[in-house]
Write a protein that binds this DNA or RNA. Structure first.
Length: 894
DNA sequence: CCCTCCCGCCACGTG
DNA sequence: CACGTGGCGGGAGGG
């Protein structure tokens, strides 16, 4: 029996405890502190748990009754209770809240497999985070409020509420008449399928809690985690907070409603749902109830957890089909090291790469890319920027980056504006890009010259490959910079960003697309009422699914590789190369850097030299925080600084210089730092995942920064910091980069802090402005600085002020509140980032406004929903009336 | 019989 | 190849 768990079981069995779960429980309880014990009691008191516990206790004698135990005693729910009893809701950060899977399994006398189930859902709520191989870090409910707030937002963005209504309606109808139903269903399915895009959203991560182990990242979908989050979203979005199993299963399945077909799938989903529900029940977030409909009672669950969280209203409401893409990988801290290791796929290069190698590699890679461009992308390495292959390319790349940034940023605008199609967005983006370009060119004529041609080439390539996106925009308009855009660029960006389109995506097309799609751009917003700024990352609106270029199949893997390479300095992709190459105009370099996520430069500049190295080193090695792989590094604080310090003004050139200097001095390090960030972010971060920024990381950053000599403006910086690091590595980096950079560019002189940021403060509601701001900020037109001071001090975790903006549009999605808070727990409102991926609609968006919901496409003719849809994304769910019967909820526990 | 959902096979990715 | 993970679904216990 136990091949799988062998070790454990053996141990377990052998272990002191008798098999009976009860005994274990007892032990645990006794061992637990009084508080815990109380908690446990409460739990027991609650419904089921209680019974079983009592019973178990009673049965003390019969330890041997192992088998008697009966299934219930082995239930996941009970197991989870036991597990939870071992840890406090609000762990002392100072303590080791380390969780060793093996130990837990042993102590609880269960197979490891079961522990995974629990951990997966806890992880989805950010109650734990994987810290290493067999270990997890316990966070308890510290971040729960935050997470729930985010999930709610995301859920709203995804329009789960509407979907649920829809499904219910369908079900009802079905009951009445089958015929109609089916047709409808099918239609719906198709529509959805077409769009697919909307599909999924992925994991929401909190900054600081990103998946660390690289290994983990690649994992398949982590469906249980994702499912868990979605399931929770369902509750948070539904009005009566009751969700029936079948409805949930349908939504989670992917909307496939063609239920008939996948009965198996449905069954499987339901099974998983039970698993998730059991742990959620243990957490006391939901309770089992039954809804009585015409036909009979259906199992369902009611949300009994916290109801209020800080929410942002947001823009998001709009539409979108956000899709998530898959998850991307994130990496946070560890990544650097990992990256380094992985750099080359096969040979292990060493971590410290020197520039040379890297350069060489770059060159090679470039060449390869050229060749490969047309050919299949099998080669792993090329990945990241696969598209950008050409040498000339460096400049082009730079340009493209810019464009990308612009583009992406623009998208939000579009979205906000309405559904208007991407086009508008594209145009805007294009304009922005153009502007940037121009500016750049002006600054360095030479560069400009050089850049243009390459750019054009790049575009072409990209266009060829990816062209799908927006037609209008897509064009490459060399001449008119304004228009130009970036499709190509985008592509590149997309690639980076694309979390991992590849594989896992089982979901589908979306995943792929994403990869290509735009990168996210981070923007800081201050709008929220709460005053907490959030950073939002948007994706470009149109990723297209171009088959031609498609990102590498295993995008994730590839990316990672790439990234690493870069880190190593070898990477072909070029970012590094570009940087290093001094030939390129400084501006370009800067841009690249910025784009790439080098963001660090800006701050650095400020700090300047002295610290730079230190920082880098710190980053690399270390971790101020002490985390193992902390990768604080990437985080560079740059962003943070920018605004507040005003230093940001520094010229790009300086930054570049600094950069270069660094490299020279410590090539490796510098290279790593820079590139990695970007890459990391792109690579690692899973799309669709919300990531809260970890305070720790922020802290680390700050520390690092300070060390570097930078002014230590903790207070001031914090907000900004968030930006930068939040993701620690992951995606955020890009965003960060962008913002700061742009600012600099445009306004070199200007001090970062500009009123702009402030301007819009509470305006989130109106998306447009906000979006614009974002965009502008991203572009650099505006200074993003927003001096948001640290949090208002939300003391309760729950309250964390998260606000989130939602952004949505098609893609985007990342929201982060910017909060500087260094303290981990104290701040409940750590900033979070949401990623959602856009969907790959790309090619076909329907042009008109379909921005969002695919759901509504619904087939149901009759359904009011349709009307709603049209109306705008927002939903009027309320408006709609649901034919369904009312649900009677009876809680019972069983 | 149906609802739950435990158990553990087995695939996948990594070291 | 072993190991850590975790998808997945058979099929059993319980009502």
């Amino acid at each position: 029996m136990g091949p799988l768990t062998t070790p454990k079981k053996g141990r377990e069995a052998g272990s002191v405890d008798p098999w009976t779960p009860t005994s274990n429980l007892k032990m645990l309880i006794s061992a637990a502190s009084p508080d815990i014990r109380n908690r446990e009691k409460e739990l027991c008191m609650d419904h089921d748990g209680r019974d079983s516990l009592d019973a178990s206790q009673e049965t003390e004698n019969g330890e041997e009754s192992e088998k008697m135990i009966s299934r219930k005693e082995k239930s996941l729910g009970l197991l989870c209770h036991k597990f939870l009893a071992r840890y406090p809701d609000h762990p002392d950060p100072a303590l080791s809240n380390d969780i060793c899977l093996d130990d837990v399994a042993t102590e609880l006398s269960v197979e490891r497999r079961r522990i995974y189930d629990i951990m997966n859902v806890l992880e989805s709520l950010h109650m734990v985070s994987r810290s290493a191989k067999n270990r997890y870090t316990w966070h308890g409910r510290t971040k729960l409020a935050q997470t729930l707030a985010i999930l709610k937002q995301v859920g709203e963005e995804q329009r789960y509420g509407q979907q649920m209504l829809h499904i219910r309606q369908r079900l009802l109808n079905r009951e009445f008449d089958f015929d109609m139903e089916e047709k409808e269903n099918e239609e719906v399915v198709e529509l959805e399928g077409a769009e697919q895009g909307q599909k999924e959203l992925f994991f929401v991560e909190l900054p600081g809690l990103e998946f660390k182990a690289a290994s983990v990242n690649s994992r398949k979908d982590k469906s249980l985690r994702v499912m868990s989050q979605k399931f929770v979203m369902l509750f948070l979005v539904s009005d009566p907070r009751v969700v029936s199993l079948d409805v949930a299963a349908k939504i989670l399945i992917g909307e496939e409603q063609g239920a008939d077909r996948d009965k198996n799938k449905f069954k499987t989903k339901v099974r998983r749902l039970y698993d998730i529900a059991n742990v959620l029940r243990s957490l006391k977030l939901i309770e089992k109830v039954h809804v009585t409909e015409m036909r009979g009672r259906k199992p369902a669950f009611e949300w009994v957890g916290p109801e209020e969280f800080p929410q942002v209203e947001g823009l998001a409401s709009s539409t979108s089909q956000v899709t998530g893409t898959k998850k991307t990988l994130l990496d946070s801290r560890a990544s650097v090291d990992n990256c380094a290791k992985k750099l080359f796929s096969s040979p292990g290069t060493k971590r410290g790469f020197t520039r040379h190698p890297s350069l060489i590699k770059l060159a090679k890679s470039i060449q390869d890319d050229r060749r490969k461009i047309n050919s299949a992308p099998t080669s792993p390495v090329r990945s990241v920027l696969g598209e950008r292959p050409r040498l000339p390319g460096r400049l082009a790349h730079a340009v493209s980056f810019m464009n990308r940034a612009l583009t992406s940023s623009s998208s939000p605008l579009v979205s906000s504006s309405g559904d208007s199609s991407n086009t508008s967005c594209l145009n805007k983006m294009a304009q922005l890009a153009a502007i940037c370009k121009i500016e750049l060119d002006q600054k360095s004529p030479a560069a400009a010259e050089a850049s243009e041609p390459p750019a054009a080439a790049a575009e072409t390539d990209s266009a060829a490959t990816s062209r799908a996106p927006t037609p209008s925009v897509s064009a490459k308009p060399p001449r008119a910079p304004l228009l130009t855009p970036p499709p190509e660029t985008r592509v590149n960006a997309a690639v980076h960003l694309a979390p991992q389109p590849p594989a896992p995506v089982a979901a589908g097309p979306v995943a792929y697309i994403p990869a290509h799609c735009s990168p996210l751009i981070p923007v800081l917003l201050q709008q929220q009422p709460g005053g907490v700024p959030y950073a939002v990352y948007l994706q470009s609106p149109s990723p297209r699914p171009n088959p031609l270029v498609r990102p590498q199949p295993t995008s994730l893997a590839v990316r990672s590789m790439t990234f690493e390479d870069k880190a190593g300095g070898q990477s072909p992709t070029g970012q590094c190369a570009a940087f290093r190459a001094s030939d390129v105009s400084p501006l370009v370099l800067k841009r690249l850097l910025l784009d790439s996520g080098l963001e660090s430069s800006p701050p650095k500049a400020k700090r300047k030299d002295p610290s730079c190295k230190a920082r880098l080193k710190a980053h690399r090695g270390g971790q101020p925080s002490g985390r193992p792989s902390s990768r604080a590094l990437h985080l560079d604080p740059e962003f943070v600084n920018t605004p507040g310090s005003g230093v940001a003004n520094q010229t790009l050139e300086q930054s570049l210089e600094n950069f270069l200097d660094r490299e020279d001095k410590s090539d490796n390090e510098a290279g790593l730092t820079l590139t990695p960030r970007r890459l990391h972010s792109e690579t690692l971060v899973p799309a669709g995942y919300l990531i809260p920024i970890s305070q720790q990381s922020l802290i680390s950053y700050n520390a690092a920064i300070q060390d570097s000599g930078r002014e230590s403006s903790k207070a001031s910086t914090p907000t900004h910091n968030i930006y930068q690091t939040p993701t620690a590595g992951s995606r955020p980096a890009l965003a960060q980069e962008v913002t700061p950079i742009s600012l600099r560019f445009h306004k070199p002189a200007s001090s970062s802090s500009s009123p702009h940021a402030i301007q819009q403060p509470h305006r989130l509601h109106s998306p447009s402005p906000a979006i614009l701001n974002f965009t502008l900020q991203n572009l650099g037109l505006i200074s993003s600085s927003s001096p948001v001071s640290a949090f208002p001090a939300p003391q309760t975790p729950d309250c964390a002020p998260l606000g989130s903006l939602a952004l949505q549009q098609r893609g985007m999605v990342f929201i982060k509140p910017v909060s500087p808070v260094p303290v981990q727990q104290s701040v409940p409102g750590t900033p979070m980032a949401l990623f959602s991926v856009q969907q790959p609609l790309m090619t076909t968006p329907k042009g008109t406004a379909l921005p969002q919901q695919s759901f509504f496409h619904t087939p149901v003719p009759v359904s009011p929903l349709a009307a709603m849809v049209t109306a705008g994304g927002h939903l009027a769910a309320k408006t709609v009336y649901i034919p369904q019967r009312k649900l009677d909820v009876a809680t019972e526990d069983s």
